[in-house]
Amino acid sequence: MLSSLKSTTTLNNGVKMPWVGLGVFLVKDGEEVVNSVKTAIEVGYRSIDTAAVYKNEEGVGKAIAESNVPREELFITTKLWNADQGYEETLKAFDVSMEKLGLDYLDLYLIHWPLPSHGKYVETWKALEKLYKDGRVRAIGVSNFKVHHLEDILANCEIKPMVNQVEYHPRFNQRELHEFCKKNEIQLEAWSPLMQGGLLDEPVLVEIAKKYDKSPAQVIIRWDIQTGVVTIPKSVKPHRIAENADVFDFELSHEDMDKINALNQDQRMFADPDEFSRV
């Protein structure tokens, strides 16, 4: 059984990525994000996930600089925003993110959305390949890509994506996409795994949580890991950050995994990537 927050999965290029990280979506830059990231690192988190559009890369970078953990022990992810898609634009946007983060290299860089209405994600991917070949980022991937978007990338790439970060939770388990990613050695990663708290009163999860003397949130995070999905729950509360990490001392039974899988309703909380076009 996976033993701690330092437990990792191995990406298709051999890079090791922690199974559980801290997401900082909607966390305010400055004191709030600095404190959240520092708390997470103190608890034992080694993976931090931000994005250009979150506007808190500077705070994340400050927290990393002020932590006592060596840089090489951390796994830092950021994402390219939609307005910066395109080959040259991507290279410039990467430089801006790196300056804000104050890092010499990045562990994972993702295209945040496919933005099919703009038709640039293959060209954008070529820029990520360059960043990877130049050694500026250890792994590259995508976010919110559906099967047909991934097929476009795979048909036109030299280097296949290592990660696809998507909306994933018990009410939206993306089974077809997950199977496609497994078949193509692309690691699936869950954003908003707790459905922004919308699943914490779900009776099935409450019942399972009581059985293991855990919280519904811990059950969901454990379910993610056992389905082979990396997960990045977000919180700014120190006790929640610690609670979300305490998922390595129990294992869900096959029966309980099946009960959670049965909660799927193909219910998106956010936009369909084919339709989302905000820049």
Rank of each mutant, 00 (worst) to 15 (best):
K28A: 14
N164E: 07
G102T: 11
E57A: 08
W81V: 04
K16Q: 07
A65I: 10
N68L: 15
I186S: 04
V206I: 09
D29K: 06
G14K: 12
V69G: 12
E207Y: 04
M98A: 02
Y45N: 06
R138V: 00
D246I: 07
Q187K: 09
S277K: 14
M269C: 12
L131M: 10
T124I: 05
E32K: 08
D256A: 14
S3R: 10
P273N: 08
R71W: 04
F248H: 10
P18D: 06
E189L: 02
F172M: 13
A40M: 10
V20G: 00
N244C: 10
I48M: 00
E32N: 06
L205P: 02
V60D: 00
D224T: 09
N164W: 03
L106N: 00
V69A: 13
L188E: 01
V230G: 00
H118N: 06
A127N: 09
G44Y: 03
L128R: 00
L5H: 03
G30V: 06
D213Y: 12
S36L: 11
K92N: 14
K146F: 02
A51F: 05
E57D: 14
P116W: 06
L263K: 09
E31M: 06
S36F: 10
V142T: 13
Y212F: 04
M269Y: 14
T227N: 15
D246R: 14
E176N: 07
F250V: 11
L110N: 01
N68M: 13
A51R: 03
N156I: 10
K55L: 12
I186N: 03
E89T: 12
L199A: 08
E243W: 08
S277W: 07
I232L: 14
I208P: 11
I153N: 01
I225S: 01
G228K: 11
F250G: 07
K62L: 07
I48A: 00
R46P: 02
H112K: 04
L194E: 03
V279W: 14
F276Y: 15
H178R: 15
A139V: 04
V229E: 02
E99M: 09
S47H: 13
H169A: 09
V122I: 15
S253Y: 11
P193Y: 04
P193W: 03
F25R: 08
G102P: 10
I76E: 03
K16G: 00
A51T: 05
